[in-house]
């Protein structure tokens, strides 16, 4: 029998025969352990993502083995690789097609900042067109780094309010990108 670990229970009030906590926390735990990533892999980092998904590193340990190639069903947009200016509208379109709640992870130097490609044709970081939650450095990041970035996303998902999209701060952020 392998060593199966359960998620720790959130903080709450416990008594004989009952346990009370907030809905936010329960939903957060559930969500964070079953994220459906949408791999937006364009170049080198996509190959490292392949390694992350394969048997050696195995992202399914974090409940994310179900890749969602349809943006409509995805929770997490993982942008891996260089985004050229020609690609930027496509990326934005994919982000717009995703339903709330949605998170974005910029994997690798190119997606985070343009990386070594400071040229006329490359977008200098995807945060010019869509908001980003977690940046993973590296060119390309090792699979461990991608997993670490993913765990940071999980932490965000766990601790976030259910009503994030109604917060003024979030509305303001989206408005900055011209997204309604």
């Amino acid at each position: 029998m392998s060593d199966i670990q359960l998620v720790d229970a959130p903080a709450g009030v416990e008594g004989a025969g009952f346990f009370a906590t907030s809905l936010d926390k329960v939903i957060g735990i559930a969500r964070s352990n079953s994220l459906w990533p949408l791999p937006f892999a364009t170049s080198c980092c996509g190959i490292e993502f392949m390694a992350t998904m394969a048997s050696h590193y195995d992202l399914s340990r974090f409940g994310a083995e179900r890749l969602s190639f349809s943006p409509r069903q995805a929770d997490l947009l993982m942008v891996m690789g260089t985004i050229a200016k020609k690609m930027a509208p496509v990326l934005r379109q994919v982000y717009l097609q995703m339903a709330e709640p949605r998170w974005v992870m910029a994997v690798g130097a190119c997606a985070s900042s343009g990386g070594i490609f400071d040229t006329y044709s490359v977008l200098q970081g995807i945060d010019e067109v869509i908001p980003v939650d977690v940046y993973v450095p590296g060119c390309p990041p090792r699979p461990e780094a991608i997993i670490d970035g993913f765990m940071n996303i999980q932490e965000l998902v766990k601790t976030e309010s259910l009503r994030r999209r109604n917060e003024p701060k979030y509305q303001e952020l989206l408005a900055k990108y011209g997204i309604q």
Partner: peptide, 11 residues
């Protein structure tokens, strides 16, 4: 094509 054109030759 050209969706990840990074201008290698120019760099």
């Amino acid at each position: 094509i050209g969706y990840i054109h990074r201008a290698f030759e120019k760099i």
